[in-house]
Design a protein around this nucleic acid. Structure first.
Length: 584
RNA sequence: GCACCCGUAGCUCAGCUGGAUAGAGCGCUGCCCUCCGAAGGCAGAGGCCAGGGGUUCGAAUCCCUUCGGGUGCACCA
């Protein structure tokens, strides 16, 4: 259950009763929100109902607030109601209702926090989509983790999510890959090779060369490039994709669909041609010239007529070329066809997780969305800013030229998957991120990964100890849900319950905003609150979770521990981070 | 030149789609603990939310503008 939703309904119906009595014109009630008050001293819930409705009704906010408050006081689940400030209505929940909320949390178990807000809308989350030309490097981590966690989050929010990877296997860079692999093939046959500037120098192509030699012997050597290139390219791309999938698996990232760019072209232009024809019918395609780019003019700029997408009709700054000077389709034309393909597969929301250097791409993708879907599908682009690497405060140097970059594998093997995933999510994606190899493996409060996981492990440890100290106590969720939860009346316990009650709300708002980091921050706060309550028991033994003298109270407190463990575990699951039973 | 992102405590960052006295961690200061359920606890100082204007009952949040930082700007992928 979601107590905020529950009380939004109650406040709304209280307002409706008042409106009916006044016989006033209908007003918009959708702006009424019930949320946790900023200051815990204000109670469990606060609503702005009186403030948003006062003006349309021509009333003073505080007067209206009093009227609403009066009705809410009749609600037996409400212990007290206060009108405060400019017209807030603050509610304190009655103990039985609080107990009921905690009980239903425990009964919902691992489903607690799941929402139907998405209404099964088909959402396509495209992320990573790294070129299949080499292993994943550390720069890919962030997009991979953010996309993956966002997809999980949307699933929790009740969306029908597909995780997708777009394989750029059609452009010039895969020909470069093929030539690089061909060199390694010659090397495998015993030739001395030097790798010229512009080809990929990495060792990771050696196995591809060896495999080619095994399969083809020396036969490729006698072929012209036009013949061997497609063969080598296919082999190299599939080897690279295997490697990339392995790398992603290290981060526990698994896509549902790998979509090949190549499949978009074919006879008569294939899907690209068909899509352009379709757009032409809708009036979005014309032949024309573009104004030269402002600022620095490219050396080889030529003013020529070309096939253009009328993107300026749908929000873009400039019309976009669909055909290159050599007559082939632009990369962008492929994107348009790919969008059409997604749309035809039934997706109505396309989310792209891209690197910050793709900022210039946002408007044109949104333009494509509008043109193809006619406004029936939405497009959101998440730009992940750079990750700066540090080691104990010192920047880690990376040189791309020498091929001496830090790979994803390096990072995961050094600090572990959980640290990488959590830290990549412990920041808004549009803010740059510092990643310190040393800090993320520290076992202390400064390290949020550790702190949250330790919260879960501590809860598990408490339950283990309880099983040992009080063997008669049934610690199953079903049994704990039946404890007398109204006994939880310590301020810290109530505060913890409030925090637990927020979880469904966090999931919904994070899913709608496409901001998985909110879950990470929430978990940190929840863990902090839990550790804090544990610490209070250090000085005040009567606050300890386990108190053998008072089995009823202990059962109630263990239910709270159980609930905390449950929510930490679910939240970590959304982030794709392990919830350990003990720390090692 | 244009577009997009960012600017919140000394540092690194949250701020729940416009709400009350703007929060957390680090660092700093002061107490406590270091015998309980390992990898500390409690408290304090620290802010013109970059500057200016606007919108309204109400702005860190929305709009305009200035400044400062980042990214991208036919045909490449």
């Amino acid at each position: 259950m979601n107590i905020f939703r529950d009380f939004t309904a109650r406040v709304t119906s209280a307002v409706e009763v008042i409106l009916a009595a006044r016989d006033s014109a209908p007003v918009d009630l959708s702006r009424i929100v019930v949320e946790p008050p900023r200051d815990a001293a204000h109670g469990d819930l606060a609503t702005n109902a009186a403030m948003v409705l006062a003006k349309p009704l021509g009333l003073k906010p505080r007067d209206l607030a009093e009227a609403i408050a009066g009705r809410l006081r009749d609600d037996e689940d409400v212990a007290s109601v206060e009108v405060a400030g400019p017209g807030f209505i603050n509610l304190t929940l009655a103990a039985p209702y609080r107990a009921h909320a905690l009980k239903s949390l425990i009964q919902a178990g691992s489903d607690y926090g799941r929402s139907r807000i998405g209404g099964d809308l088909k959402v396509n989350v495209e992320y990573v989509s790294a070129n299949p030309t080499g292993p994943m490097h550390v720069g890919h981590c962030r997009g991979a983790v953010v996309g993956d966690a966002l997809a999980n989050l949307l699933d929790w929010g009740g969306y029908d999510v597909t995780k997708e990877y777009y394989i750029n296997d059609a452009g010039g860079q895969v020909d470069v890959l093929a030539r690089s692999a061909f060199l390694r093939y010659r090397e495998a046959l015993g030739e001395e090779i030097t790798i010229p500037e512009g080809l990929y120098p990495g060792d990771y192509l050696k196995p591809v060369g060896t495999a080619l030699a095994d399969v083809h012997g020396r036969t490729l050597l006698d072929m012209p490039e036009a013949e061997w290139l497609p063969l080598v390219r296919e082999a190299a791309i599939s080897a690279m994709m295997l490697m990339i999938r392995d790398d992603l698996a290290l981060l526990n990232v698994h896509h549902d669909v790998f979509f090949s760019e190549k499949t978009l072209s074919g006879e008569n232009g294939g899907k690209i041609g068909a899509t352009i024809a379709d757009m032409e019918k809708k009036g979005f395609v014309y032949s024309g010239t573009l104004p030269p780019p402002k600022g620095q003019l490219p050396d080889d700029w030529e003013d020529r007529e070309q096939l253009l997408f009328r993107a300026t009709d749908v929000g873009d700054d400039i019309d976009r070329p669909l055909v290159k000077s050599d007559g082939s389709y632009t990369y962008f034309a492929g994107d348009v066809a790919y969008f059409k393909d997604k749309f035809d597969r039934g997706f109505r929301q396309m989310i792209y997780v891209l690197g910050a250097d793709h900022g210039g791409y946002v408007k044109r993708l949104q333009a494509v969305g509008r043109a193809i879907s006619g406004g029936t599908a939405s497009v959101d682009v998440l730009l992940c800013q750079l990750v700066k690497l540090y080691r104990a405060g010192e920047p880690v140097r990376m040189s791309k030229r020498s091929g001496d970059f830090v790979t994803l594998r390096d990072v995961v093997e050094e600090v572990g998957r959980d640290a990488v995933r959590f830290m990549m999510l412990y920041r808004k994606s549009d803010a740059p991120l510092d990643f310190d190899f040393q800090k993320v493996t520290e076992q202390s409060k400064d390290n949020p990964v550790f702190y949250v996981q330790y919260g879960h492990a501590r809860a598990a440890s408490i339950l283990r100890n309880a099983a040992q100290d009080l063997p008669a106590l049934d610690l199953s969720g079903a049994a704990l849900a039946g404890a007398d939860l109204a006994l939880l009346d310590d301020a810290g316990e109530i505060s913890l319950q409030r925090r637990l009650a927020e979880f469904p709300r966090i999931i919904e708002s994070a899913a709608e905003a496409h901001e998985p980091h909110r879950v990470a921050f929430y978990l940190y706060e929840l863990a902090a609150e839990f550790h804090q309550q544990w610490n209070r028991g250090k000085d005040l033994p009567q606050l300890r979770f386990i108190n053998p003298e008072q089995p009823q109270l202990t059962a109630a407190r263990l239910a709270l521990v159980h609930a905390t463990k449950l929510v930490l575990s679910s939240g970590l699951l959304v982030l794709g981070v392990d919830a350990p039973e003990e720390m090692r």
